[in-house]
Amino acid sequence: MAVLNDKNVILDVRNLSIDYRPLDQAPVQAVRNVSFQLRQGEVMGLVGESGCGKTTLMLGLMRLLPAGGRIVTGQVNFMGRDLMQLSEPEMNGVRWKNISMIFQGAMNALNPVHTVGDQIAEALLLHTPTREKAVLDARVLELLDLVGIAASRKDQYPHQYSGGMRQRAMIAMALACNPQVVIADEPTTALDVMIQAQILELLSNLRRELGLAIIFVTHDLGVVAEMCDAVLVMYGGVTAELADVDTIYNEPAHPYTQELLRAFPDLTRPGEKLTAIPGYPPRLDPPPPGCRFAPRCPKVFERCTQEEPMLHELGDGHVASCHLVTT
């Protein structure tokens, strides 16, 4: 899959591993050896249960890990540079300008005492040389228009916005500096289905019009099927499976992907029983030996509990880490 000279590849993540080292506690191996590539204008879904390391992976490649979080190994190649090797000021030049992020739960993190327009202007000021009010204002209005917020709302406060509008404002902020890559961490999880549909449509349009590459982090498999070109399924900090969207949904190779799909309600097949995945994700401080999914896997056999499966290539851009696919 690693077509090295694929010139549309904009972000190339290699073997990224991330630990958390809480004081007085065993280190948490939150992410291990995750690799993927993102092409220009591509939407990649990042899915997996709560705690599997999705947010950590994204914060890691942005180099925004909280205290205690540490990149253990890996490269993040972006436009010919390894982001992990940049100095902090250099990295600051990449953040928001080239790669920006809509944080999980961010729509509730808008500052209540400033107007939405001012907060977007502030995001602009961080990275644009201009201090001219007229220029800033024009850009703020342009951004609001891009995300479908009426100009008349610019001087309102966050509490005067609905949840959907606040999420649009966050998207406007993420787009402020014309990034090539936007990471959206659960951008629609707290919204109702109609507003979610509006936001998904907005992101699809932005991708089409601006050629944005998007990493869409979610646990909603319906949204991923709707939006994404490729899907990375994580389990307990590692890659379970990575493939194009059709393969993931119609020929999933990893038992975890298969189980995840069976646990997801499908409106087109009412009456069918949902199959919950029994048990819970593994501890990561440290993880148990063998395959991390083994304790919950319906297809587990002896080797699974002893030996950790390596990522195995199954076809063009399709990889899975399961002993069943290697034999």
Partner: peptide, 11 residues
Amino acid sequence: SVVPAPNPRLR
């Protein structure tokens, strides 16, 4: 119509 179907073939 806006409930996303969990399969890209059902878009």
